[in-house]
Amino acid sequence: MKVELDKRVYTLTAVQETAAQFAALTDTAVTSGKKAITVEFRSFDEELGPQVVDEFLNYALAESISNRG
């Protein structure tokens, strides 16, 4: 599963930080493009399922907002 995040909204640092925090729950690959950051979710924790993606996106958004001050 791949999710594209607009760079005007999400910062790369925040997404990478989030990926590190969620490393125990999901295996992700973060790549940065010109206008968007792509996050590929390779595997989820079985108990949580796709809900991890939503939690991941919430966390990344919170981090991005915090980073912008």
Partner: peptide, 8 residues
């Protein structure tokens, strides 16, 4: 309270 995703 909920999951929020912002996109263009």
């Amino acid at each position: 309270k909920c999951y929020v995703f912002i996109d263009k």
